[in-house]
Write a protein that binds this DNA or RNA. Structure first.
Length: 224
DNA sequence: TCATGATCATGG
DNA sequence: CCATGATCATGA
């Protein structure tokens, strides 16, 4: 993969270097086979982009470019710029959250600065032919952060009160809490309503489509 | 048609 | 199991 970028400007130049290329072209450069589809390889696009931008692989709960304070997110869009999927952010802590605040949370750290990289995601376009768009840096506005904090506070309070199973993906203004696991058999500990330990599916934080769509639109308008 | 809940691959 | 990278696919 590419050398780890040493500055924000270098990271952005890496980004410009892949803009406009197809996924198969980028896969060839990386020496990776392009699968027929993503059904059995859902993280393939993200991992391919990581290779080209010099993001350190691994599964640590921190930003992709920790030394730059930047998190990388590919985001699937259609030809009209419409966001096609919600955006997974991080897994959700469930136990021992009493000292957790929005300020010191992993999700807030990850979202403090994001390099969004739009990629064509329409299933009717063969994976190999999908094009990479122009990446851009984003930091939440005061209002955007306020919305995320409100949702986070509400979700984490329910979890602490043993009401995790009452939380729906419909809850929240911009954040969602949804299952995040290899399959429905995976379980982890959580508090029940009487404070007892119960088994639940692990959860993750996701950004709702309308929120990321707004981010994409803001950027798009700036470039018109 | 579309979002929610379910699922896939991989490394530690 | 938990973390990363996400998209799939069925019910409404």
């Amino acid at each position: 993969m590419q050398p780890t970028p040493q500055s924000e400007s270098q990271l952005l130049s890496y980004c410009e270097a892949i803009a406009g290329y197809s996924l198969s072209e980028l896969a060839d450069i990386a020496g990776i086979i392009t699968p027929e589809n993503l059904r059995k390889n859902k993280g393939w696009v993200g991992q391919l982009i990581e290779w080209h931008l010099g993001a350190s692989a691994g599964s640590k709960p921190e930003q992709d470019f920790k030394h730059l304070g930047i998190e990388l997110k590919t985001i699937p869009i259609d030809s009209n710029g419409k966001v096609l999927e919600t955006t997974f952010v991080c897994s959700t802590p469930i136990l021992n959250t009493t000292h957790l605040t929005w300020e010191n949370s992993n999700i807030r750290n990850k979202l403090s600065k994001v390099l969004w990289l739009p990629v064509q995601g329409e299933r009717k376009i063969p994976l190999a032919e999908r094009l990479v768009g122009n990446g851009f840096l984003w930091t939440a506005s005061t209002q955007q952060e306020q919305l995320m904090r409100q949702d986070w506070d509400e979700i984490m309070e329910k979890i602490a009160l043993g009401k995790i199973e009452q939380i729906s993906a419909r809850d929240g203004q911009v954040l969602q809490l949804r299952p995040k696991a290899a399959n429905g058999q995976v379980v982890t500990d959580a508090y029940g309503e009487e404070g007892e330990l119960i088994k639940v599916r692990p959860r993750g934080f996701y950004l709702k489509k309308a929120f990321t769509q707004h981010i994409i639109n803001q950027q798009f308008n700036l470039n018109v």
